[in-house]
Design a binder for these strands. Sequence first.
DNA 1: GGGATTCTTCAGCTATTTTTCAGCTAGTTG
DNA 2: CAACTAGCTGAAAAATAGCTGAAGAATCCC
Lengths: 225, 225
Amino acid sequence: MEKIKVLIVDDEETITQFLILGLQNEGYIVESAADGMQGIAKAEQFEPHLVILDVMMPGMDGFEVCRMLKKKGRKLSIIMLTARDQVDDRIKGLNDGADDYLVKPFSFEELLARMQARLRNQFPELGDSLLAGPLRIDDRRREAYLEAEVLKLSPTEYELLKYLTMNQGIVLSKALILDKVWGYSFNGEENIVEVYIRSLREKLHDKDRQMIRTIRGAGYRLDVK
Amino acid sequence: MEKIKVLIVDDEETITQFLILGLQNEGYIVESAADGMQGIAKAEQFEPHLVILDVMMPGMDGFEVCRMLKKKGRKLSIIMLTARDQVDDRIKGLNDGADDYLVKPFSFEELLARMQARLRNQFPELGDSLLAGPLRIDDRRREAYLEAEVLKLSPTEYELLKYLTMNQGIVLSKALILDKVWGYSFNGEENIVEVYIRSLREKLHDKDRQMIRTIRGAGYRLDVK
DNA sequence: GGGATTCTTCAGCTATTTTTCAGCTAGTTG
DNA sequence: CAACTAGCTGAAAAATAGCTGAAGAATCCC
């Protein structure tokens, strides 16, 4: 699956930072800009699928940025962020081309849900099934296939394989995998990654480790022809 | 069954919110707009099957919106909402292309009934009976069939089966099921979903759980050949 | 009001999954 | 080639998700 690119345009460092971390953790490619001008420039070059746009910014405000982005004509979803006391009709009306808005403070889950709704609308081809050579992951069914075979995976095995698949060709350290798949709150040893990699290899009939490669001292890499 | 898309155009936040929740809960895909202009823009992009349209709105009023929507020529049902003292002849005559109207305040059940009537007219292929392999749900009669057998289901069992059927092939978490079938105000344990799944399995003669599958750590999925 | 049905809770059980661990293997380095 | 280290492995122990039967509560219908 092609990764989804998200651009954040907000002058508040705290929020931006929070969003970057959260969204990257969800597997999005994230870039940010601190004001409208910058945002437009970034968008030009980065070509995001979705823009998260603060209404209240110094210089060009969110509405203006929104109009300009939409004018470019590229397929693009925009979600506006606004403080409770700034919800004016322009937002409610979504007149300037925004697709949705969220009132601060919002929960991260709320944002994710809205984003997914938007993306499903605009880019139905994304998000559904993940491909990597003979491997396919259908996240809606929560099933993984090797060629035609349905893999029987435990929850953690599934998440791990999904993470590897999303990052095929890239070396992932055990520490990183632990973070992404087990979550930051896990405080066991890295050995558990080795244990799970083994069971994945078994289920992928990857005895000679051609598919999930061990990069000694660095981590693991999913290689598919 | 293809899901039915409903667009709500109303400037009253309370009503909109109420309708969104209620209709989503019924399995419709819902979007909303707060005024006429926005409504037309949303309709363009969202392509709803049915529009619920308030007559009294700032700016463009319901009649105008109605005419414009109908002019687009796409197959589309429109239900107008109006206050008791605004019921004028234009509405009664449904001259501008609206298909039905409701006087506020109205009961949610009333609205659902009208919607279903409209949808049956315009999209006979939708709305009537839900099919999933050997399963069929006739929502009008509120009956479920397995092949030729009529299933004797309790109200909750029926709703649960309907929700699973509408989302066949997709993993649904217990939390989500709880939300959609029991409603967000329910605050019991997720165990109740397990209990109901069991009784559905029993009534579907699904002892080996091929039909309603448990996806450990994720939820349940209705699989039919 | 009372009988029938339905809803909800609960605790024990089971099967699966997760985690740990100790010993082992195989690269790497000097 | 010896010493060292990273990663592998099999198995045991711990934890947990989901299943189940039953019982009490709530609701419906006559």
